[in-house]
Amino acid sequence: MAPNDKLYETNLIYKSWIEHPLKVITPSVANQNLGFRKPQRAAIYTSLAHLISSPEKPATIVMPTGTGKTDTIIAIIIVAHFEKTLIIVPSDALRRQTAGKL
């Protein structure tokens, strides 16, 4: 999860992830209910723990319907500073939705 210096110098989006880290916050009245719900935070933190302890091993994240998987995927990509990511989805409609959010 250490930043890639070469990518940092050449890619403005990647550079923004390093200079303006995503905050994984809990929704509250104080922040206008912005933030990540409990299943999303759990998946983000668990993924980061796995990346730190066993980065060479693949992992699977399982989340129920309606828990915000797409936003969770995007958050993990940004927080972990992934240089490349392949997202596979089962339908064209879901592909369009995911691409639109990205």
Rank of each mutant, 00 (worst) to 15 (best):
M1G: 06
M1Q: 09
M1I: 06
A2I: 14
A2E: 12
N4P: 10
N4W: 08
N4Q: 12
D5Y: 13
L7D: 01
L7T: 09
E9L: 13
E9T: 14
E9F: 12
N11Y: 02
N11A: 05
N11M: 06
N11R: 11
L12W: 12
L12M: 09
L12D: 15
I13W: 13
I13E: 11
Y14F: 10
Y14P: 02
K15M: 07
S16Q: 14
S16P: 10
W17R: 14
I18P: 01
E19K: 10
E19V: 07
E19S: 09
E19C: 06
H20Q: 12
H20S: 11
H20C: 12
H20N: 15
P21W: 03
L22W: 01
V24H: 02
V24I: 15
V24Y: 03
T26G: 04
T26F: 03
S28H: 00
A30W: 03
A30G: 00
N31D: 01
N33F: 12
L34S: 07
L34G: 07
G35P: 00
F36H: 05
F36M: 04
R37S: 09
R37F: 11
R37T: 06
K38W: 01
Q40W: 00
Q40L: 02
R41N: 06
R41K: 14
R41V: 06
A42M: 12
A42T: 13
A42C: 10
A43K: 06
I44F: 03
I44H: 00
Y45L: 12
S47I: 05
L48R: 07
L48K: 09
A49Y: 14
A49M: 13
H50F: 00
I52Y: 04
I52K: 13
S53K: 15
S53T: 15
S53Q: 14
S53I: 12
S53G: 07
P55S: 02
P55E: 01
P55K: 01
P55D: 00
P58H: 05
P58V: 01
A59N: 09
A59K: 07
A59V: 09
T60I: 15
T60W: 06
I61A: 02
I61R: 01
I61W: 00
I61E: 06
V62E: 13
V62G: 09
P64C: 08
P64F: 02
P64E: 09
T65C: 08
T65S: 04
G66Q: 03
T67R: 01
K69V: 01
K69E: 02
T72V: 03
T72P: 00
I73Q: 08
A75E: 03
I76E: 11
I77E: 03
I78D: 07
V79C: 11
F82P: 10
F82G: 05
E83L: 04
K84R: 14
T85E: 01
L86H: 05
L86Y: 08
I87W: 06
I87M: 00
I87A: 02
I87Q: 08
I88S: 08
I88H: 05
I88L: 15
S91A: 13
S91Y: 10
S91C: 06
S91T: 15
S91Q: 04
R95M: 15
R96W: 12
Q97S: 03
Q97L: 07
T98G: 02
T98N: 10
A99G: 11
K101R: 15
K101T: 11
